[in-house]
Each structure stands twice: as C-alpha cells, then as structure tokens.
Design a protein around this nucleic acid. Structure first.
Lengths: 162, 162
DNA sequence: AGCGTCTAGTTGAAGAATCAACCACCCGCC
DNA sequence: GGCGGGTGGTTGATTCTTCAACTAGACGCT
C-alpha cells in the first residue's frame, strides 16, 4: 500500500512542465498524423516503422529490434507490419539461423514511398515544432529529453552510443 | 506542391531532440496508463478528464471547454463521458441558458475516485519523470514546452494567464 | 417571421491499440 | 537425448479513437 504519507504535490514550475508535456503529447502526434494521412494515408507510427527500416543496414530488421526502435510492443508492431505488408511496403522473411525470429524487409516500393514522404515530413516537423525553438532550446531539450527517456527505459536504443 | 527545393534535414542535435520527444511520447503515457489501470481501471485520459472537472469551479464544465482542457476532440470526449457516466463518476446536464450546451458534472463518487487516485498518480509522475530532472531542467522544460504548445495551438488553455 | 450559417454535441461504423492466450523454437542442464 | 524455462512472434477479442454524418439550437439579416 502506497501513500500513507502526505504526497509531495507539484509546484508551479513542475506543473507547467508537466502540463506542457502532456499537451505536446496529444497535439504533436495528432498534427503529424493529419499531415501524413493527407500525404499518403499512413499514420506517424506507420511512417516511423518504414523510416527505421530504411535506415537499417540492408533495409531489414528482426521484429523485436524494429519494435524497440519504434517504441512499440511486439503485438502492435505485428499488426502494423501485416497492414504494411498488404500494401506491399514490407515483407516478412524467416531468419536463416534462428527459426524463432522474423525479419521485416522494406520493399523497393516501400522505399520509394518513404523517400517521397520524408522531405515533407521533415518540413512538417520543423513547422510544427523545431522552428519554435532557438539553438539553445534544442540543446536543452535534447539533454532533458534523453534524461527522461533514460529514466523510462534504461536500455532505450536512442541512448546507445555509436 | 511542396518540396521542389532540397529539404533542410535535421542536424544531430535536432535529431536527438526529436527522437527523444517521440520516445517520451510513447513511453510516458504507456507507463502512466499501466499504473492507472492497475490502480483503478482507468486510462490517463479518463484520469485527466476527471482531474479537469475536479479543478473546475463547481466541478462542472461545458463539453467544449472540457475538450479543450483535455486536448481532445469533442467526439472523443463525448464517448469517454458516456463511459464515465456509466461508472457513476460524471453526469450530463443541459445548460440553463443555451440549449446547445451540455455540461459535464463530477459526481461525489467521481470526486472520491480522483481524490483517492491523485496522490499515487502524482507520485508516479515524479517517479517516472520529474525526479530525473534538476530544478533548472524543470524550468527549461516548462519554457520550451510552452513555446512548442504555443506553436501547435496559439490559444491553448495552459497559456491563458490567470 | 423566415432563412442561412455557425456552434455544440452525439452517434455509428471503421480502423487502431491493448491484452491475454498461445505456438514454436532455442539453450542449458540433467 | 529430452525436459524446463526463456525468447520471439502471432492472433483474436475487447476497448479506444477517429471520421463523417447528423440533430438541434443560437444568432444575424431581411
């Protein structure tokens, strides 16, 4: 049982930070979803999956690695890959040395799709988000953001050094 | 047609900031959803709706105002209020002077629910998020977060001065 | 009073996310 | 060599979200 002692309520600045984060959290994906849906009938998550594959060596990744890089559950990813597969953007193949693993491969058609979408998407990210910030803001946000990610998931892939 | 010119790709820090934000965006709500679901079978969004009502004068708000304060569409809110109503936490009442308006009222039972949940939730927010940050981080995040919110929605309620 | 337009909200169907149950396979160990 | 636990992945049911269509009342104009 937790909370027998008086909780430490949020002070004004903590509350501001928290509310802003929650608001960004609903507003930003919604806006990008709208843009991407208009540009190519896909969601931000669909886009992220394709983008992660396009940046991977050989344009394929095991499902679990792809799930990690898109911060999704295996279940969610599996459903989405099925959808992307039906559209011809992704293929599933068995792993040669471990029969448990499935690898998701980006098809040529999938590559064309994301290459066509990427410039517009990057522009949208700037419009909606980055252009509001100074260079210092970007630096601060990267620092703070990575701290938070580290707390939420110690082994998160964006924290791997390379 | 957009994008005839070469897009400005993200530099290293912009990419770090962007990836961190996207990751936080999926990880944080998921973690809080899990906690809240364990504590009381509700989602972060359900919680937010109840919290906004509990903080409102008279513990009621018009649907549109409640939608604004929880960053949701009227449609989403309407479905959720229906659900909360079935659990006895919220009531719908007509507005006395404008028959178009429905007001959502927090019931006593709803108030008890959120009062019971709030200390644990605040602790979770600290555990998962705020405790990773210094005071300066919190200040920076509040400043940057509000800038971003302002860009996404000029009239967002958290930016109203009061 | 009657018309058009805008605002507030609801609804049902369609698509997406989560959860729990499940299968198949790998690996270490007896 | 086979048993047990852990890993990688899929599936279907349930729940949530979104989208488009719709009702109804307010407000302004003539």
């Amino acid at each position: 049982m937790k909370g027998m002692t008086e909780p430490r309520w949020l002070n004004a600045d903590e509350r501001r930070a928290w509310l802003a984060l929650v608001s960004i959290n609903t507003l930003l994906p919604a806006a990008l979803d709208t843009k991407l849906h208009a540009a190519g009938k896909l969601s931000l998550f669909d886009y992220t999956v394709l983008a992660m594959l396009s940046e991977a060596e050989g344009r394929f990744l095991p499902m679990s690695e792809l799930a990690a890089r898109s911060s999704a559950s295996l279940s969610r990813l599996s459903h989405v890959v099925t959808k992307l597969q039906k559209r011809g953007w992704v293929e599933r193949r068995p792993h040669p040395h471990d029969a448990r693993v499935t690898t998701a491969h980006l098809t040529d058609e999938g590559m064309e799709t994301i290459v066509g979408l990427a410039p517009g998407h990057v522009e949208d990210v700037r419009d909606l988000f980055l252009d509001a910030l100074t260079e210092q803001d970007v630096l601060d946000l990267a620092r703070i953001g990575e701290k938070v990610v580290g707390r939420l998931d110690t082994d998160h892939w964006i924290l791997r050094e390379g």
